[in-house]
Computed example of a mutant assay.
Amino acid sequence: MSRYTEIRSFALIAEKGSFAAAAQVEGVTPIILGRRLDALEKRLGVRLMHRSTRGLTLTDLGEQFLEQCKQLLHDFEMAEASISDQHNAMRGHLVVSAPASFGRQHVAPHVLEFKKRYPDLRLSFNFTDSVIDLVREGYDMGIRVGAVYDPNYVAVRLFPNQRVVCGTPDYFARYGVPLQPEELVQHNCLAFNQQGGQQHGWTFLRDGQMFSVRVQGDLDCNDGELLYDWVKQGWGIGWRSTWEIQAEIKRGELVTVLDDYAISDYDIQAVYQQQRYLPAKIRVFTDYLRQIYNQPGYWEQG
Rank of each mutant, 00 (worst) to 15 (best):
F19D: 06
Q24S: 15
E248L: 06
C69K: 07
W230H: 15
P109T: 09
P99N: 07
P160Y: 04
I132A: 06
E253M: 08
V135R: 13
H110Q: 11
R35F: 05
R47V: 07
G302H: 00
M49L: 10
M90K: 08
M1S: 13
D60T: 13
I7D: 13
T128C: 06
L33K: 05
F285Y: 05
D140R: 03
G176C: 01
L158T: 00
L66W: 04
R43F: 05
Q71L: 14
D170Q: 11
E253I: 07
D140L: 00
Y288M: 01
I143Q: 04
Y4H: 15
R3P: 09
L94G: 06
A262L: 02
P181N: 03
Q275K: 05
A79H: 14
K70F: 07
G103P: 06
G297E: 07
L226A: 14
W243Y: 12
Q269W: 01
T256L: 04
I245A: 00
N152D: 11
G103A: 05
L134E: 06
N188I: 07
T53H: 13
R104A: 13
D60F: 11
R117C: 11
L123H: 09
G45F: 01
I237E: 03
P296V: 02
M78F: 11
I245L: 02
V107Q: 10
G208Q: 10
V165H: 03
A14Q: 14
I249Y: 10
D170A: 12
P181F: 00
Q162H: 06
A108I: 12
Y272C: 00
V156R: 04
G197Q: 15
D150I: 00
Y139Q: 06
A270C: 01
A108C: 12
D218C: 14
G234T: 01
S241Y: 11
R8L: 15
E183D: 08
M1F: 11
A20C: 11
Y288V: 04
H187T: 02
G103M: 07
T5C: 10
Q301E: 08
L205P: 12
Q274F: 05
G62N: 05
R283E: 07
H50K: 10
Q199F: 15
H200L: 14
A14H: 12
T5K: 15
K232M: 13
I7E: 11
D170P: 01
V148K: 02
N188T: 07
M141H: 03
L219I: 15
D267K: 04
D129Q: 08
G103Q: 03
E80P: 07
D229I: 10
L219H: 15
G34E: 05
